[in-house]
Amino acid sequence: MRAISTLVLSAAAIVATALPAAAQVDAAVALAPQGRLEARGAAVTVPVRVMCQKGATGSLWVQVTQNVRGELAIGDKYTPSVPCTGQYQRIDVTVVSRTKAFRQGVAFTSASLNVYLPPDQSNTVEEDREMMLVR
């Protein structure tokens, strides 16, 4: 019985590795090196360039975190739909702080682009970088 179980598991492993993985759809995300403070630091406008394959659907999540005098100013924004044209598109994402006001200076910024092309192609691309916040 043990030999049969081992044989079945081995066969299943071989079949699983032989099956092609779901194809990935073309996608890219790039954060600008500079963001603009809005409303006395209540928010930051983050320029993002996104590219996803024509015919796909994409969504974007951006987060900004900054150390402000020993406390964190944190905000994030989900954009449920981004243009997928096969070319880079600029999107300005306004991130509102959930904690305290952002200030001029360096902040850490993350972006995640999720793309889906029916029937079964998908991809997630991310970028993290330091961003200078200016007025």
Rank of each mutant, 00 (worst) to 15 (best):
V93H: 03
T85V: 07
V29R: 02
A42K: 11
R40V: 10
M51L: 15
A30F: 08
D92W: 01
P20V: 01
R90W: 07
Y116W: 13
A12S: 13
R2L: 11
Q24E: 15
A32W: 03
D120A: 15
I91Q: 07
V50F: 02
Q53R: 06
M132D: 14
M51V: 14
W61L: 13
V48L: 09
L9T: 10
I4W: 09
V64N: 02
L72P: 04
I14M: 09
N123I: 00
V46T: 05
V125D: 04
V25D: 00
E130V: 11
Q24C: 03
A22P: 05
V82A: 02
I14E: 09
V96M: 11
A111E: 09
A16T: 11
V134M: 06
V48T: 07
D128T: 14
V96R: 15
E127W: 05
Q63C: 09
Y88N: 11
T109W: 01
R90F: 04
A3V: 13
E71H: 13
D128P: 03
V25K: 00
A27G: 03
P33H: 10
L133C: 04
A27V: 00
S59N: 12
M131F: 06
Q53H: 05
A13V: 08
F102T: 03
L31D: 03
L31C: 06
E71A: 12
V8S: 10
R2V: 14
M132V: 12
Q104H: 13
L117T: 00
T79P: 01
A32C: 05
F102V: 04
T57K: 11
L7T: 10
A32H: 06
G35A: 04
P118H: 10
A42E: 13
F108C: 07
A18F: 08
R69K: 13
D26T: 11
E127C: 06
G58Y: 01
L7H: 10
R40L: 13
T65K: 10
T124M: 05
A56N: 03
V134F: 05
S81P: 03
E71K: 15
A111N: 10
Q87S: 12
A3E: 12
Y88Q: 13
V95C: 03
V115K: 00
M132G: 09
M51W: 04
Y78P: 04
L113P: 00
E71D: 12
A30R: 14
P80F: 05
D26K: 07
T6S: 13
D120G: 11
E127N: 09
A28F: 04
K100P: 00
V106Q: 14
A16K: 09
S112H: 08
L113G: 02
A32V: 04
I91K: 03
K77A: 15
A101R: 15
I74W: 05
A18I: 07
T17K: 10
K54T: 12
P47E: 04
I91S: 02
A12C: 11
A43S: 06
Q63K: 12
P83A: 10
G35C: 02
S110G: 10
F108D: 15
M131W: 06
V50T: 14
A43T: 00
L60W: 02
Q24P: 01
P80W: 06
K100T: 12
T65V: 14
V95E: 01
L19W: 06
